[in-house]
Structures are given as C-alpha cells and as structure tokens.
Amino acid sequence: MPLLSRRQVLAAGTALLAAPHVALAQAPIKLTLPWLAQGSTAYCYIAKEMGAFSRRGLNVETSRGFGSVAAAQALAQGQFDYAVVGAGPMILAAARELPITGLATVNYDMTMGIMVRADSPIRTAKDLEGKRLGAVPTSAEYPFWPAFARRAGIDLSKVTIQQLDNRVLERTLIDRQVDAITAIASSSIPVMQAQNAQSRFIPYSSANLNFYANVICTRPDVLRDRAAQAEAITDALLEAAAFQLREPERALDMFVKQVPEIGITSGGRENARLSQGIMQVTMVKPEAIQNGLGYTDMAAWNAMTDLVMEFGAPADAKRPATDAIISNRFAGKTKLTPAEWDALRARLAPFGAMIG
C-alpha cells in the first residue's frame, strides 16, 4: 500500500472533522403543527412548496400535532425545534416554566368555543347544564373551558365531561354520543361540513374570553444560539401566510401537492378551503393591518396572560413576563396594501358568519 503524504493525511483528517458539521447543517429542522394538517396551518406546507424555506437555506420537516398543549410540551422537551401553538396554551406552558418563546403571531382569534349540532336544543352556554360535553384534554381550548363556564354562569358540577381522542371528536358529536364538544372553529367546522353535518358554534369570546390564535414558537436556547435561523423560519412562514391571503386557490393547490391525502377524498379540498377561510378572517385585524404580519399587541398579550393566570394556570404557577416570551423582533416585515385588506374583508365575510 503506498504511503500517504503529509498533505493527504491532513486533508483526510480535515474532511473527517468537517463531516459531523456538514451532517448537522443538513439535518432537517423539525416543526410541529398544533393539530392535523389543515387549511388553517397550510402555510407551513406552502412555505416548502413555494420555495420560501429553500431560498433561505432551510430544510424543514413539518409534523402533525395532537393539540396545542401537547405541541408546546413536545417543543419544550426538545422533540421539535419550532412549533405553531395557540397563544393561550403557550402562555400556560410558560406559566408552568416550560422553555418556550414566541417569534410572531400569525392570527388573532383562536376561535375557541362550543360546537353543537344544528338541531340541538342547546341555544346558549347555560343550556349545557345537564348535558354531556366531549373534549380533547390536550387541545388548545379545553384548558379554558372552566374559565368560559365561570364567565357564562355555567355550573360545572352539572356538566358531564367525556374525554375524547382528537381523531373522533366531531364524529362523536355527529353520532350523538355527546351533546356538545369544545372545539376550534377553524378545525371542527370544516370537518362537520365535510360529513354533511350542520352545526352551530358558541364562541368563548361571547363570554369575553379572547385569545390570539397561532404563534410561531421556539425555545429560548434555539433563539439564542440560532437567531438567524429563527428569523428565517419566521420570515418564510409569514411569506407563505401572505401568499395564502393573496392567492387562496393557488395556495390550496400547493397545500394539496405537499399533503396528497387532502386531495384523495372529494371533500378534502373543500375542508381545507373552509379551514383556510376561517383562519384568514382572524388575520384581518388591526395588529396586522397597521403593523404587518406577525405583529403582537403587547397590551392584548398582557390581558391574555391575566386570563391564563386567573383561570388556566396552577395555583403555584409564576406569571410569565410578556417581554420574556413574545416580541416583535421578527414581525412586521411582510405587509399587505390597504386595497388588499379591503378585498379580503369582502371575500372572507361568509367565513366570518360561520364563527359568529
């Protein structure tokens, strides 16, 4: 065997030393959704299809979620690098001292509430007394059910809670196994309509319980050590969300291409269209219109934190400081014109009527 020169040995050693770093750079960045792949979070897939990730040198792997509470926990435990989490569950996670921080607010109403069948005798929140209420314990809205009940004057002892798996939540209501479910309108209304089941929705906001919706989140250590990456992830997702607003049908085409099972059934695309439309209604808000996509109103965030600490957090929980868990550092770069916002208001009016 011929002897290697000193230069060849050094070159080989350098290559070996560099290899782990190359592998690390190419390893996928892991992002989890709060729920199933739906129109309301399609921008996470559209960002890949339109090249918003690749143009920034990002290799992102998006996974379905099992509720915002579970997504926040999985992020905190290091199973994912980034997560899309509802604002209420995110604040709750921070109050429980889980490492989580928000990079940008995507939309401004979680559309949390109570769903009933259209033919249900339940007309008001108070009518839930004496009824069976289905709920997914790890969902975004369930931790705030007691808060809604208190504000709506519901006697909790008179409501039977039936814990459900998220995969059968709406089906259980359709089959009359429960009288009502706690739900996110942007997720559950499309599922009900896809199964030809008419429904009505009683929003938590009817009892003045208001929460922002999805927030792009990471852990403080990721933000500290990979700030450029965190900014790039945020920029790519907000670019894709803006594309959804401007070109909803093309956006759905991209979504179906990335998640083919959405297009397998005849109702799959319609489900995604409804979910997308309801989500977009909650983006047409002063925060985004005046300041750009992703912007968070800190006064509104403080008010949400007060609600979490009063109704959702354990008695010994520590109130998280707003500036410690959310900022506008990466927000506001992507903007729509006044004419575009006006057009959106008109186009999205039918979706707004669905959530009251």
Score class of each variant (00 low, 15 high):
Ile325Trp: 00
Gln290Phe: 05
Asn302Thr: 10
Ala300Ser: 06
Met279Gly: 10
Ala317Trp: 04
Arg319Asp: 00
Asp316Arg: 05
Leu293Phe: 13
Gln276Leu: 10
Val308Asn: 07
Thr305Gly: 01
Phe311Lys: 00
Ala299Asn: 14
Gly294Gln: 03
Asn302Gly: 15
Phe311Pro: 06
Ile278Asp: 03
Ala317Pro: 02
Ile289Tyr: 03
Ala315Thr: 09
Ala313Cys: 06
Leu293Lys: 04
Asp306Trp: 01
Ala299Tyr: 08
Ala313Trp: 09
Met279Thr: 11
Lys318Leu: 12
Glu310Ser: 04
Met304Gln: 14
Ile289Met: 15
Ala299Trp: 06
Gly312Ile: 07
Val284Lys: 13
Asp323Lys: 12
Ala317Cys: 03
Lys318Arg: 15
Tyr295Gly: 11
Ala317Asn: 01
Met309Trp: 02
Ala303Ser: 13
Gln290Thr: 08
Met309Ile: 05
Glu287Gly: 09
Thr322Lys: 12
Leu307Ser: 14
Gln290Val: 12
Gln280Phe: 02
Pro286Tyr: 04
Gly277Val: 08
Lys285Phe: 04
Trp301Ile: 05
Gln290Arg: 15
Val284His: 09
Ala288Arg: 15
Ala299Val: 13
Ile325Cys: 01
Ala313Asn: 07
Ala321Val: 14
Lys285Gln: 14
Phe311Thr: 02
Leu293Asp: 03
Met283Asn: 12
Met283His: 11
Ala313Gln: 08
Tyr295Lys: 15
Gln290Leu: 15
Met279Arg: 15
Val308Cys: 06
Gly312Met: 10
Gly294Trp: 07
Arg319Asn: 00
Ile325Lys: 00
Val281Gln: 14
Ala315Arg: 07
Ala324Asn: 11
Ile289Trp: 03
Glu310Asp: 03
Ala313Asp: 11
Trp301Asp: 02
Tyr295Leu: 10
Ile325Asp: 00
Thr305Leu: 00
Ile278Met: 11
Ile278Ser: 02
Ser275Phe: 02
Lys318Glu: 09
Tyr295His: 15
Asn302Lys: 13
Arg319Gln: 01
Asp306Ile: 01
Pro286His: 10
Ala315Asn: 02
Pro320Lys: 10
Pro286Asn: 10
Pro320Arg: 07
Asn302Ile: 01
Thr282Ser: 12
Met279Tyr: 05
Val281Leu: 11
Phe311Met: 04
Ala321Asp: 14
Met309Glu: 02
Gly292Thr: 06
Ala321Pro: 10
Val308Phe: 06
Ala315Met: 00
Met298Ser: 09
Ile325Glu: 00
Thr296Pro: 01
Arg319Pro: 01
Lys285His: 09
Ile278His: 07
Asp306Cys: 01
Pro286Gly: 08
Ala313Ser: 07
Gly294Asn: 03
Leu307Gln: 15
Val284Ser: 12
Gly277Asp: 14
Val308Ala: 02
Ile278Pro: 08
Pro286Gln: 11
Arg319Ser: 00
Gly292Asn: 05
Trp301Ser: 04
Thr296His: 07
Met283Gly: 12
Ala315His: 01
Met283Phe: 11
Thr282Arg: 09
Asn291Phe: 12
Gly312Thr: 10
Pro320Met: 11
Asp323Thr: 15
Asn291Tyr: 07
Asn302Tyr: 03
Leu307Asp: 14
Tyr295Trp: 15
